[in-house]
Nucleic acid binder design. Sequence first.
DNA 1: TCTATAAGTTCCTTCAGGGAACCTGCAAGA
DNA 2: TCTTGCAGGTTCCCTGAAGGAACTTATAGA
Lengths: 152, 152
Amino acid sequence: MQRTQFGEMACSIARTLDVIGEPWSPLILRDVYVGFSRFDQIQQDLGISRKVLTERLKWLVANDVLDRRPYSGGRFEYVLTDKGLELVELLMVMVKWGDRWTAGTAGPPVLYRHHACGEISHVELSCSVCHKPMTPADIDVLPGPATAGFAS
Amino acid sequence: MQRTQFGEMACSIARTLDVIGEPWSPLILRDVYVGFSRFDQIQQDLGISRKVLTERLKWLVANDVLDRRPYSGGRFEYVLTDKGLELVELLMVMVKWGDRWTAGTAGPPVLYRHHACGEISHVELSCSVCHKPMTPADIDVLPGPATAGFAS
DNA sequence: TCTATAAGTTCCTTCAGGGAACCTGCAAGA
DNA sequence: TCTTGCAGGTTCCCTGAAGGAACTTATAGA
């Protein structure tokens, strides 16, 4: 958790960062998404300090991103909630950017196969109304109902 | 910057976090995207420490996300590079999640108007091959060419 | 009963974040 | 020309979060 608290800012980016803005949290979500669901599995896979992992998991559970469930006699597993599963969309866009700008010569470390068409593909952003591509260059940003605006 | 370095991990998420994983960086990008391009503007808008803002801006310029340009007599402005503009896609997905799960009763603080159709809409993830929706529940994750895999 | 393992907790050290004060170079006004 | 103002930092100190290793507790199986 950062020192400055983002949770009360009138900005959806800041409030999202309040939940998963600390650098380890997206990697923890990734691990849970791909099936590393127990404490020691995640700790060893990421090489994160046990102390920090404890703090992050508690925070993510408290924010309803992960659910902590008894697994078998005194053990626990962490699973994504619906709220957490939607955060994986963010990871998919991170993967897209990382593949494009940082992957180097070895190619991407991971591929997606889309259930609907069966093809190996990557993710694109599209408009929920007309379904055409929708990138940062394709939009105007306007103040919304909670009118503090995009930038405050 | 976090203490553990993510830049060398064989994971596109970790390498993306290495560039913008520190909590202030997405908010700095947001400010530059909406037109807050000078040091004092960003500092006052975000309430970030001048020291930390200096460090973040240098890091983002060094990583070719922002460009630092002379503006008029000894002043400078920061502008997004192509690499940086693509990171704004990440912000758009953060906004989507934040609007849905943390906006409360006031409604979203910002709206997008899509140039292609002129409508107020939000962003969706779709498949680059078949253009149908592509969410975390719609895909299989497979090891890619740099076969350390999604989870390492 | 003894041992192994999972899931933390505790303690200590180091380093990053926050905040305030200070510095520097350019520009315009008196 | 002097000086005032401002943008864009830099420097200093203090606090608190991250890292790491050792310790603790509870359960399961041999």
